[in-house]
Design a protein around this nucleic acid. Sequence first.
DNA 1: TATTTGCGAAACCGATTGGTTGCACATAAA
DNA 2: TTTATGTGCAACCAATCGGTTTCGCAAATA
Lengths: 106, 106
Amino acid sequence: MRRDIFQAIADPTRRAIIALIALQALTPNAIAEHFQTSRQAVSKHLRVLTECELVTQQQHGREIHYSLQLERLQEVDHWLSQYRNLWETRFTQLDQVLSTLKNQKK
Amino acid sequence: MRRDIFQAIADPTRRAIIALIALQALTPNAIAEHFQTSRQAVSKHLRVLTECELVTQQQHGREIHYSLQLERLQEVDHWLSQYRNLWETRFTQLDQVLSTLKNQKK
DNA sequence: TATTTGCGAAACCGATTGGTTGCACATAAA
DNA sequence: TTTATGTGCAACCAATCGGTTTCGCAAATA
């Protein structure tokens, strides 16, 4: 199934999981300990995150360590960048208004 | 109802609406013309966007113009910034590794 | 070998989602 | 005044979501 990263980060639990594994890879059980939910529910979230390649798996014996693919978040950053330009332009325009007013005073 | 901005931008149609009204305010009818969906469906999306204060309404006679609240997107930007630090740190660390190798060569 | 542990997958369930159609109600135009 | 237009809202519906419980299987442990 084709997954969308925006839909993946829409769920607060999934954002919490992302925060958890940002610094170190964790197993589903280790992640589930941080929530009042079952390991299976966490596994379903990890499945969604895996499907949009936000996390990857490393198998160690019977344990599976999930780690965050930080660079995938740049897709969100890229989407945001078009609007970042806009709001920075807005500030630039405000600056221009202010400096125009300043010059008129002189 | 309390709305979440991440859930608001999860839907592709809503992201398209955001892109449409980023530059100029539009009416529901004008927005609906860009999609193969009913005006009422667009209205429901606008309701979601309004509830999380991503858009605001300006009434002009019987028309209602919806415009984007650009600065609300900074909430996403802020969430992203913690990870942006991480991926920039990662590059910095890579740079350090490279320069260490370079120095060892000398 | 027998048992425990870590995991994914499947079946199920209530709540939510995104769409529709059909209204009611203002405002603008004839 | 009568008619047309722009809109929000409610009712309905199939699909999806996020959770649970139950299961099967491979790997570690006794």
